[in-house]
């Protein structure tokens, strides 16, 4: 069957975010793109099981996440060099403002357990609700909340921003400005 144009657009529209999610799961752009490709092929082969009117993005994320879990985690031990590889793959991207800070952040993120990392990304960056994230990950909403909390705490530790002192007067000034400034 030919694909409905609106379905094709919805799938295409979800690709940038799917890639961002995949890269955060794999820590490697090439493997992430393969993961996205396999996800799209699976999705298209099973497009009939997609219910029109429901969230296409959440559906695709679920397929990607499950595929990653079943296939890629097996291989992960073979390529267990997350940090080095993060740095390498990032070098292929153009240098941008704040790139160093981003690289440190990615490295810290790579240290989180996979469960916590995916929950944090889905809620904090992909823009899914706790309920949607619980559905994508196949677990309870409370579990997602707890994973997100632990992920944040661990990240703050790894990045040494676990105390308000770390911010210094600049940050305090900014906070005051944020409250009062319009």
């Amino acid at each position: 069957m030919a694909m409905d144009e609106s379905v094709r657009k919805a799938v295409l529209g979800a690709v940038p975010s799917l890639r961002a999610f995949a890269i955060s799961l794999c820590g490697n752009v090439d493997r992430a793109d393969d993961l996205v490709q396999e996800t799209l092929l699976r999705a298209l082969a099973n497009i009939d099981s997609f219910q029109p009117g429901t969230n296409m993005s959440a559906w695709l994320f679920t397929i990607l996440r499950n595929h990653f879990r079943s296939e890629y985690r097996k291989r992960r031990r073979e390529v267990e060099d997350s940090e080095g590889h993060y740095a390498e793959t990032l070098k292929t991207q153009p240098e941008q403002h704040g790139q160093v800070e981003l690289r440190e952040f990615r490295e810290a993120l790579a240290h989180l357990p996979a469960d916590q990392r995916e929950a944090l990304i889905l809620v904090g960056a992909s823009g899914f609700s706790y309920e949607e994230t619980a559905h994508i990950c196949g677990c309870a909403v409370g579990t997602i909340k707890s994973r997100v909390n632990r992920a944040r705490t661990r990240l703050a530790e790894l990045l040494s921003i676990n105390g308000a002192d770390e911010f210094g007067p600049d940050e305090q000034t900014r906070a005051v400005l944020a409250r009062g400034g319009e």
């Binding site: 940038p16 890639r19 890269i23 904090g124 921003i161």
Partner: peptide
């Protein structure tokens, strides 16, 4: 943390 997370993600998006 939220800001950095989104910056990282949006970099790819």
């Amino acid at each position: 943390l939220g800001q950095q997370l989104r910056a990282m993600y949006d970099d790819v998006v």
